[in-house]
Design a protein around this nucleic acid. Structure first.
Lengths: 159, 159
DNA sequence: CAACATTGTTAGCCAAGGCTAAATTATTTG
DNA sequence: CAAATAATTTAGCCTTGGCTAACAATGTTG
């Protein structure tokens, strides 16, 4: 057996470079990230479809492809998946709609996204940068952290 | 052509739900995220190997597998990739070492990781949560945001 | 030092998420 | 309303990053 001393100095509260966390905790961190990766693309598509429906009245595959920056073929394949997951309904060659589950996911994602984006802006990050960072961070922020970000943003606004 | 009005109300500074960003910017956001995904696993492995070398003196495939929470076969395959990318050197059945490029990547990743982790702690996020969130956020935080996080943490500490 | 346990590698499978090229369906317009 | 254009889908390819099972090398210990 290697790694026989799994938790040398479990928490050295804010030093430059901590010791390694206990094996189980460490593995849990990575597992959480892998997990997030599985759902995040799905959420991004659903969120985008929701936004297109809200702001444009319809969500066409071509628009999604343009905004995602991928080929139409990729979008078409993805829509099939979203259909299987019962997040969208679609008739061939027609615009998309969200199921109830899809709408809920879209709203949740949108809300998280907004909290993160506004938090970054409040911190003083430039708008374009904040948008890029928020897109990536959105799926990796726990509910706990999200709540703290929200509170922080509100406090700053109340100045 | 659909989506013919690409930038209705380009920036409404901090309202609950913004309008859609211009198509090119929107595509850029997603492209940045996709890009990050390509490198982040590599960086996580390299960072972990660096940490194991620092704190344990050696980096064995079994330890990596345990800490990553994946099978040894997966690690073995990954090590081959890291070798091809000239980030690590390895002899069969022996411990790993980082090349100069690998060391640089490990240090950079570690530094980013620490900034994000300490920022979250400073915000008031619980340690275990902060560790999980930092692991995911690390690869999606721009240099600009990172600098702001660093400054924020330092300011709070100086109270 | 032989047997057993641990560690590492290889082969072969799978799903996801990209792509291009070709075929099909809708829509617009001369 | 026919022809041209645009949108969508399908087929087939590729890479990544997981997995299990079988095999090979190394290390440990009775």
């Amino acid at each position: 057996m290697t790694d026989s001393n799994p938790n040398a100095s479990p928490s050295a509260p804010s030093m430059p470079s901590d010791a390694l966390p206990p094996v189980e905790q460490h593995a849990q961190q990575y597992a959480t990230v892998r997990n997030a990766h599985e759902t995040e693309l799905i959420e991004d598509y659903v969120e985008l479809i929701g936004d297109l429906l809200t702001h444009r009245g319809e969500a066409r595959a071509a628009d999604i492809a343009n905004r995602m920056g991928v080929s139409q073929a990729t979008v078409s394949k993805m829509i099939r998946r979203l259909n299987e997951l019962e997040l969208v309904t679609s008739k061939p060659y027609r615009s998309l709609f969200l199921t109830a589950a899809g709408q809920e996911m879209a709203e949740t994602s949108r809300a998280r996204h907004d909290v993160v984006l506004n938090f970054l802006r409040t911190l003083g990050v430039r708008d374009a940068t904040a948008r890029i960072d928020a897109e990536g961070m959105e799926h990796h922020v726990s509910d706990e952290t999200l709540a703290i970000m929200q509170r922080f943003t509100e406090q700053q606004e109340r100045r």
